[in-house]
């Protein structure tokens, strides 16, 4: 199965990258754009099938390594096959 982890800066944490990108978007004329946040995605293949055990392992992985709970939120998607 294919796993995609989405990591984004917490809404309460200042995101200088998002602010700079928002500024660039506005300077290109996209005045209606707001609240830009820049995060990252991590994709990987994993053997096994979607199950509560696998999801709990993924939480462990996301909380410890792939994201820092002090400044980031995460969610993941699992694609079977």
């Amino acid at each position: 199965m294919k796993v995609t982890v989405f990591v984004s800066p917490k809404t309460t944490v200042l995101d200088p990258q998002g602010a700079a990108v928002e500024q660039a978007m506005k300077s290109l004329g996209h005045e209606t754009v707001e609240s830009v946040r820049v995060g990252k995605t991590v994709t990987f293949e994993m053997s096994g099938e979607d199950s509560p055990e696998v999801r709990s392992k993924l939480d462990e992985l996301c909380d410890g390594l792939l994201s820092n709970p002090v400044i980031e939120d995460y969610r993941f998607e699992i694609e079977e096959g």
Partner: peptide, 10 residues
């Protein structure tokens, strides 16, 4: 405690 993120000036 805490974390260090990107400088606000980029």
């Amino acid at each position: 405690p805490g974390a260090l993120v990107r400088n606000d000036c980029m």
